[in-house]
């Protein structure tokens, strides 16, 4: 099977995934009854007239399947409806909050990649040395340290005890640092990015070191060394490129993990991102917002997985496409 056919098959599967999640969620929310009834379950004392007008306003009349297809048709046009609690277009909210989430996650994963490459090379080229064992132990501990606990420790240390970094929010509420939106934003990003970067570095280092140790033992490395290439080029040019293949597939998983646990990260740092928005939505049973946020998170996750899958087959032609 050719690469093009493989990619098409993955694309179709991804579309199925997204639709599958939307059906599960839609069915679940509607299993309780009409979204209006969900709202009423925790807000007694609303008259029938008001219920009628709400139903009209949010387009919640008709059968479950009718509503599902109306909703599905609308989200293709990036129209997620109107938030019941905030009375704002859900698509607008998702965009604003989504950017805040990416603002901490993308730098974190880039920093983690850079740092883990350096650490892994350091460890793998000195296999079974003190440095190597130190790196393995550190990475293992970092990998097991729950992200939110690290976040809490960082807040305690840098915000409460040293008082140098802010513990919550994306911007200062009163005075911006140095009166600059950019500097103030960066200042607030330090702790959440540090937490995410640390977690990702630990996991990536564990993987990359093992992979690098494996590659460095192979014949083509010996051949490269024998041909008189400087060690630096052997490691960074030849070994690292090959060691990166298993790590690449993991990047998608890691990104998914970060996105999936964004509610926790963003609760620890009171960060106004997609995860925090999602928590608010399910606490307040804001049905269009729950659907919208889940769909966006699923979409981002599926896209990340899809991209890594495709990158994988392009980079490594040995892979059997099955």
């Amino acid at each position: 099977m050719g690469t093009a056919r493989y990619i098409v098959r993955r694309l179709i599967f991804s579309a199925f995934l997204i639709i599958g999640v939307s059906i599960i969620l839609f069915a679940m929310i509607n299993a309780i009854g009409n979204p209006i009834e969900i709202l009423l379950a925790e807000r007694p004392g609303i008259t029938d007239e008001i219920i009628e007008s709400i139903t009209q306003y949010y387009g919640l009349g008709g059968s479950v399947t009718d509503r599902y297809f109306t909703w599905l048709g609308a989200i293709i046009r990036f129209d997620f409806g109107t938030s019941i609690i905030y009375n704002l277009p859900v698509s607008e909210m998702l965009l604003t909050y989504g950017l805040e989430t990416l603002k901490i996650q993308i730098p974190a994963i880039l920093i983690a990649l850079l740092v883990s490459v350096l650490i892994s090379v350091l460890a793998a080229t000195r296999q079974y040395s003190r440095i190597d064992f130190g790196v393995i132990a550190g990475a293992m501990v970092g990998h097991s340290l729950p992200g939110f606990l690290l976040g809490i420790l960082l807040i305690l240390l840098f915000s409460y005890w040293l008082g140098v970094l802010p513990s919550y929010g994306a911007y200062s509420t009163r005075n911006l640092l140095m009166d600059s939106m950019v500097i103030d934003g960066l200042w607030h990003m330090v702790l959440p990015v540090a937490m995410l970067a640390f977690f990702n570095t630990a996991t990536l280092t564990l993987l990359l070191r093992a992979s690098l140790v494996d590659v460095l033992r192979q014949d083509f490395i010996t051949a490269a060394r024998a041909s008189g290439l400087p060690e630096r080029r052997v490691v960074f040019g030849h070994a690292l490129r090959n060691a990166f293949i298993p790590v690449l597939t993991y990047l998608g998983i890691l990104f998914g993990l970060m996105l999936g646990t964004a509610p926790v990260t963003e609760t620890v740092f009171t960060w106004p991102g997609l995860g925090a928005l999602y928590i608010m939505a399910i606490q307040q049973l804001d049905y269009p917002l729950i659907m919208g946020a889940t769909m966006i998170i699923t979409f981002m996750l599926v896209t990340a997985t899809l991209l890594t899958d495709i990158a994988y087959v392009i980079i490594d032609p040995r892979i059997r496409l099955a």
Partner: peptide, 20 residues
């Protein structure tokens, strides 16, 4: 399918809705 969907996100919603 279960490996790719955001499991944690879905669990949060199900726990909340099931409670109702």
């Amino acid at each position: 399918f279960f490996m790719v969907i955001p499991v944690f996100i879905v669990i949060l919603a199900v726990v909340r809705l099931f409670g109702i």
